[in-house]
Write a protein that binds this DNA or RNA. Structure first.
Length: 559
RNA sequence: UGACCCAUAGUGUAAUGGUAACACUACAGUUUUUGGUACUGUCAUUCAAGGUUCGAGUCCUUGUGGGUCAACCA
């Protein structure tokens, strides 16, 4: 064939390819993923991880993991550990040991001194209000504070004394001397260091001054020899400053390139708001399966591959975007469909008796584990006279195209026999309490000689063999597509009150007794489920990862 | 009223200046011992107006709309 499929490249790949072609950095590619350890990673970070590690993989490079820990008041080792775990779980390996911006505090300090010596930085005693006032606004140029003209000697002395702890928190800052009338606010003498007495998760109380993001990030990149420093669009206006420090310091020229961050509908993505949901108890922790964090997706049963595929499908560009949750759900179904064992579990049970099946008789039926994977083999499922089926699979007075059970109707039990519904009884509340059927003995799955037709197939569980478990069905956390859209309202007003449905009366086939955390199952006709870490041997708990597509329910407006 | 960035189906991402493609969603069908999966079909002339060109989604100009920036956060 003369038409080969050309894999389309995103702008970052094109850029790196050009760099490689032009011999930039001698063909070396080193990216980095630089989280601040102040919270758990979310699906947006997952995209960034896939982009950074993926780019390096594609071009024979490496990726550093560097914690951007320059603000001790927010950071903690708890987050460091969770972040490392999440990256590994996603299937990526960083180069060598993890790195920390705090490892460079000495070098950063020396760089600041260099800039002071060059007359490019000064100590300012102004309060933060005064500094803000002197900065002007985007349309009004700033004015110098009185300290801007201090001598190099005085600045050197003052900065050393800042470091030595001679001044109280907030009393002085070190600022770069750039351009107070720049149209780019970030160039109006940005802060480089502030005085902060807080315990740092790694350097303890060694320092009382800490570098700001802008003075730490680019130089950290440079120190590590990062070739492509890829970040999100909101840092775009920082780039001239990133370049300015590198140029004035005459250090390795890492280059920053920005891409659009991921947004998802029906959720919120900022760490601040996620933290609020956790701290105010709207969810049960950072890994509550309704959260958009990586740890939550893991607990909910998403596979690493499904998230990597999702990141791939989402693409990389420079325009703001909101990805449809449906794409994430598609990605996980697509992957789980291939790898999940099919099992039977009845979520809303109703008793069914096969009146012509001998009492006390038990039959073991062989049922394939996964029709999508012939290698997966089969398992034996016990069958008997009394079964549970799904309450919703029976209707007293079914509509025309209801392919399930109703008085006088035939239906196939998955992997078993065809039943004929004889009658049923109700309890005092008018609820169906028992369905009575007969079975066609010669209709056994795989050796059906009955000639009987059945339109539908139901899942079932043998009552004497059933294992009673708890099931947690999750729905989207927010009922509004854009919880942040209305500036008049708090996003928490849009929390979906029905985002968690706990079912305690669920019966599953005995094979599930040996289910393990991290395994994926498809509860046939229902959805993908996985064992929750809360489970104990005597009390199994299953999380719904995602439901199956259900064109019947969709068409009939049911839930 | 400043600087920078962005604008292609409902959503997202493509398209050396040469017939607008792919995926998701939605809808309609085929297959099916999961109303699942798989498969088929349907759905945009690229924000607007000018300009350059034989030819513009792509280049230029001007608008319009949106985003980011005035934290001792990252």
């Amino acid at each position: 064939m003369d038409t080969e499929k050309v894999e389309s490249k995103n702008f970052l790949e094109v850029k790196i390819e050009n760099d490689l072609a032009n011999g930039v950095n001698d063909g070396r590619v080193l990216t980095r993923f630089p989280p601040e350890p102040n919270g758990y990673l979310h699906i947006g970070h997952a995209k960034s991880i896939c982009v950074n590690f993926g780019l390096a993989q594609k071009f024979g490079g490496k990726t550093n993991l560097r914690f951007d820990d320059t603000n001790p008041v927010k950071e903690d080792t708890e987050y460091v550990e969770s972040i490392k775990k999440d990256i590994k779980w996603l299937g990526f390996e960083w180069e060598g040991e993890e790195l920390y911006a705090s490892d460079y505090f000495d070098q950063l300090y020396a760089m600041a001194v260099q800039l002071i010596e060059k007359g490019l930085a000064y100590v300012d005693d102004s309060t933060s209000e005064e500094i803000a006032a002197h900065k002007g606004s985007p349309t009004v140029p700033g004015k110098p504070t009185p300290n801007r003209s201090r001598s190099i000697e005085e600045n050197l002395d003052l900065f050393a004394r800042m470091k030595a702890g001679e001044f109280p928190d907030g009393a002085k800052v070190l600022r770069a001397k750039i351009d107070l009338s720049s149209p780019n606010m970030h160039l109006r003498d940005p802060l480089m260091y502030r005085i902060l007495r807080a315990h740092h998760h790694r350097t303890g109380d060694d320092w009382v001054i800490y570098p700001m993001y802008d003075f730490a990030h680019g130089q950290s990149d440079s120190i590590e020899g990062i070739t492509h420093s890829i970040c999100t669009l909101e840092f775009e206006n920082h780039r001239p400053l990133y370049d300015w420090f590198i140029e004035k310091l005459e250090i390795f020229p890492s280059k920053q390139t920005e891409f659009a961050r991921l947004n998802l509908n029906y959720t919120v993505m900022s760490k601040r708001r996620l933290r609020q949901l956790v701290e105010e108890g709207h969810v049960n922790g950072w890994d509550d399966p309704r959260m958009p964090t990586i740890s939550a997706f893991r607990r909910r049963g998403y596979s690493p591959a499904s998230i990597r595929n999702f990141a791939q499908k989402v693409g990389v560009a420079r325009r703001d975007n909101v990805i449809d949750m449906a794409l994430l759900e598609f990605s996980v179904r697509e992957d789980l469909n291939k790898v999940s064992s099919r099992v039977m579990g009845v979520l809303d049970p109703v008793k069914l008796v096969i009146t012509n099946f001998p009492e006390g008789k038990e039959e073991l039926l062989s049922i394939e584990n996964n029709p999508e994977d012939p290698e997966s083999g089969s398992r034996e499922v016990p069958f008997s006279r009394e079964l549970y089926i799904e309450r919703g699979d029976f209707m007293e007075d079914p509509p025309k195209k209801f392919f399930r059970l109703g008085p006088g109707k035939n239906v196939r039990l998955k992997g078993a026999y065809i039943l004929h519904c004889e009658d049923f009884s109700k309890d005092e509340n008018g609820e169906i309490s028992e369905i009575r059927c007969t079975y066609y003995e010669d209709s056994k799955s795989g050796s059906d000689t009955s000639g009987v037709k059945a339109k539908g197939t139901l899942h079932w569980v043998s009552i004497p063999h059933a294992v009673k478990v708890e099931v947690r069905n999750y729905d989207r956390l927010f009922s509004a597509e854009f919880p942040m859209a209305d500036p008049e309202k708090d996003f928490k007003e849009f929390i979906n009150p029905n985002s968690l449905e706990v079912l305690t009366e669920v019966y599953v086939e005995p094979a599930l007794q040996s289910a393990k955390v991290g395994e994926h199952y498809q509860f046939m006709r229902k959805g993908y489920y996985c064992l929750d870490p809360d489970a104990t041997e005597n009390h199994l708990v299953f999380n719904r990862t995602v439901g199956l597509r259900d064109s019947w329910a969709k068409k009939h407006g049911k839930k």
